[in-house]
Simulated scan of single mutants.
Amino acid sequence: MTGTIAPRRARGRTAARRAVLIGWLFTIPALLAYIGFVVYPLLTGVQYSFYRWNGVGPSEWVGFANYLRVFTDPDLLGSIGNAFILIVFFTAIPVSAGLVLANLMRSMRPGPFSTVSQTILFLPQIIPLAAAGIAWSWMYAQTGAVNQILGAVGLGGLARPWLGDFQTALPAVGLIGSWVLTGLCTVLFLTGIGKIDSSLYEAIRLDGAGWLREFTTITVPGLRQEISVLVTITVIAALSSFDIIYTTTLGGPGRSTLVPGISIYRIGFTQSDVGLASAFGIVLMVLVLACVLPLQRLAKVSDR
């Protein structure tokens, strides 16, 4: 009996080692690509951030001078402030609107209208952000669709070049982000609602609860994981926004829509200050992590 157990154990260990080897063979190509396209550029960026370098000539060691400039330059600090303002438009509005729309669409009967509604809401996700930015810049123009609609409903006095006004440029750009992300939030919430036990809705209706109590006591708690994922995605999108700003305002008028992504682009490619651009990029990465990691921690605690 003992003689048969030992070969079985040996064969089991051999099969386990073979499975590990096969797993590494599948993992190594992706790991090498990750190291080459993520880890190595990140480490290189950290290295460049301690130098003054124009990208061509000799570099000069400056220590933490680039980081000090990031935290003392009012223009760079202002771009970070604009990014936090965009969180309202990229996160608060899409997530709230997505919750409401998903709850309304849940009550619809399955059919062509429901399918078309979901398709229209998700459509911005398949449109390149650069194309969306260009289209919205036309609609926001003085003679664009937005001002024409305002004139048609008797609000022509509100018409203005929305992206050219210091007061409205940032909210106008933010609303483009809201439009893009609302469909993603709605579709993901619809998927999450489909996983909630329908008997919970039936039970609360038998208790005489209205739609608001049903929404706050069953739908929202049942979508904690989806809310956590979407808040994380949209906060990252707000803090690292580039495409929409670049194609609509380039950070103008003045610096009213300047965000870190545009600042890094300008510093690195226009001013040829690779060291400062790298330092600002590292600061932006740390800022994103400082915002996202507590959100993830809070989501895990609330799920317990």
Rank of each mutant, 00 (worst) to 15 (best):
S272G: 00
N66P: 01
A15L: 15
R11D: 11
F280S: 00
N82P: 00
T234C: 13
A132S: 15
R8V: 05
I85F: 09
Y34Q: 05
G183W: 01
P74C: 10
S256P: 03
G251W: 12
R297W: 02
L123D: 01
I22L: 15
L223K: 07
S79H: 09
G144H: 03
M285G: 12
I245L: 02
A135L: 13
I264V: 08
A237C: 01
I218Q: 02
D273P: 02
L99K: 10
P112I: 04
G174E: 06
I267A: 03
D303F: 04
V173K: 00
D165Y: 08
L170T: 05
T27Q: 11
I267S: 03
A92K: 06
P110I: 06
G252A: 02
D273E: 12
P7M: 09
I28D: 13
A30T: 12
A209I: 06
S278R: 11
T257V: 10
Q296K: 14
V46Q: 04
A279R: 01
R304V: 13
D73G: 09
A152F: 10
G55Y: 10
S117M: 14
R106I: 00
A102N: 08
S272V: 00
L293T: 13
S114P: 00
V88P: 06
A131Q: 04
L212Y: 10
R8N: 03
F26T: 05
N103T: 00
S228G: 14
L223H: 05
P112W: 08
V56M: 10
W211S: 15
T232C: 06
A299G: 15
S198H: 09
L32N: 01
L230Y: 10
G183H: 00
I227L: 05
V283N: 06
S117H: 06
I227H: 01
E60N: 03
G281W: 11
I227C: 03
I193P: 06
I176Q: 05
V292S: 08
L42M: 11
A152L: 11
L250K: 14
L206T: 12
M105N: 01
L129E: 07
L212P: 01
D75G: 12
V146A: 09
L99D: 03
V95Y: 07
R304H: 11
I233C: 13
A65N: 02
G144L: 03
S79Q: 06
W138G: 00
W61Y: 15
I196M: 04
T91Y: 10
V100P: 06
L295Y: 07
T249L: 13
A92L: 15
V283W: 09
T91R: 07
P58E: 14
C291V: 07
V274P: 01
F122Q: 07
I233S: 10
S49E: 02
L298I: 12
V187Q: 12
L25S: 11
T219I: 14
T182G: 02
A10E: 12
S198M: 02
L155G: 05
